[in-house]
């Protein structure tokens, strides 16, 4: 029993890290623009397809040892960059012209972007590459090769700890630390925090709010790209709808922690990952959406500002 609990704890943590990474993207954009970027989960999905394509191009299935890790690092960097650029492009092309429009417009546009991206994922899956199964079934999930050894690091213990668990947790923590330093120690971070509280006052400090918004989209997208590689390495699948569900869960995590609150997103992600793991184990995976969204609804009713408090600017 204890072993099961510990295993679920580990599963929850690793899942939670991925949720947290995606949630950070949602929360940062919301903090600055008070806008839910519905398409964020799909940026995550596209980065996953990108990563899979890279893996195929680089021939990583056959790589070993140091070469494998070095190239894997490259995939991480490139996929993050991909996610960052895609996220920024979407903002510049679709959201930016709607900055002053009523809330309905960017929200619906984001849904539109989500559709477009999902369709792109579908078509990407039709590419005649081996990793995509020849491209004959674009809607089917693609398997991401198991690049990391699956030996149990804990030997014969009933609890399985694989290299990929360590990687997920370690890499995620590293990225989050970098983000923390960015937000608290750099000028850009200072500008981001000021803009999130009062964009007009930030302008009066000489802060170029437009550039801050762009930087936020870049960082958020980069986090999503990074999360996609981590996710793909762990779950060994990419599929064109993986953005939709994970995105909603990640957004739930962001709200749970307090939307706009960066540590909140991490906490929310971890909590949701744990709840999901334990719910799957003890209630059954088929009830997963009901449990997770049920929690979201209850939370929003009783504590809309989330666990750590939201930064949402109150409308008078």
């Amino acid at each position: 029993m204890l072993d099961t609990l510990a295993q679920q704890l580990l599963l929850g943590l690793t899942n939670g890290m991925v949720f947290a990474l995606i949630a950070l993207g949602y929360t940062m954009v919301y903090g600055i623009l008070e806008f839910i970027n519905f398409a964020h989960g799909d940026v995550f999905m596209l980065s996953g397809f990108f990563a899979l394509t890279l893996v195929s191009v680089l021939g990583l299935q056959d790589a070993q040892g140091f070469s494998l890790f070095a190239q894997l690092g490259l995939v991480l960097v490139l996929a993050s960059a991909f996610g960052a650029v895609v996220n920024l492009l979407i903002d510049r092309l679709v959201y930016k012209p709607l900055r002053k429009a009523p809330k309905l417009a960017p929200l619906v546009s984001a849904i539109g972007v989500s559709f477009v991206l999902q369709n792109i994922g579908l078509i990407w899956g039709a590419m005649p590459l081996d990793v995509f199964g020849g491209g004959g079934q674009p809607a089917a999930p693609k398997s991401f090769p198991a690049l990391l050894p699956t030996t149990n690091l804990l030997g014969n213990s009933a609890i399985t700890l694989q290299l990929k668990d360590v990687l997920v947790i370690g890499a995620s923590l590293a990225v989050m630390t970098v983000l923390y330093l960015l937000v608290t120690r750099t000028k850009l971070g200072m500008a981001m925090r000021a803009t999130a509280q009062d964009p007009q006052a930030a302008r009066l400090m000489g802060i170029d709010v437009d550039r801050v918004v762009a930087a936020t989209f870049l960082v958020g997208g980069g986090l999503a790209g990074f999360a996609a590689v981590v996710y793909a390495l762990y779950i060994n699948t990419v599929y064109y709808q993986m953005g939709y569900q994970n995105g909603l869960y990640a957004f739930t995590a962001a709200v749970v922690g307090g939307i706009g609150n960066i540590p909140g997103a991490v906490l929310g992600g971890l909590l949701l990952g744990l709840v999901r793991a334990f719910s799957d184990q003890f209630i059954g995976a088929q009830w997963q959406p009901a449990v997770l969204f049920g929690i979201l609804i209850v939370l929003l009713v009783f504590r809309p500002s989330g666990l750590l408090g939201s930064t949402a600017r109150e409308k008078v």
Partner: peptide, 26 residues
């Protein structure tokens, strides 16, 4: 070929329809 079905491009169209609508005539 799966891409030769219009249904494979449907969501593209809906998505763009929404985006353009919000931009030009919300």
């Amino acid at each position: 070929h799966p891409l030769a079905r219009f249904s494979s491009w449907r969501w593209f169209l809906f998505g763009f329809a929404l985006i353009f609508m919000m931009r030009l005539r919300p």
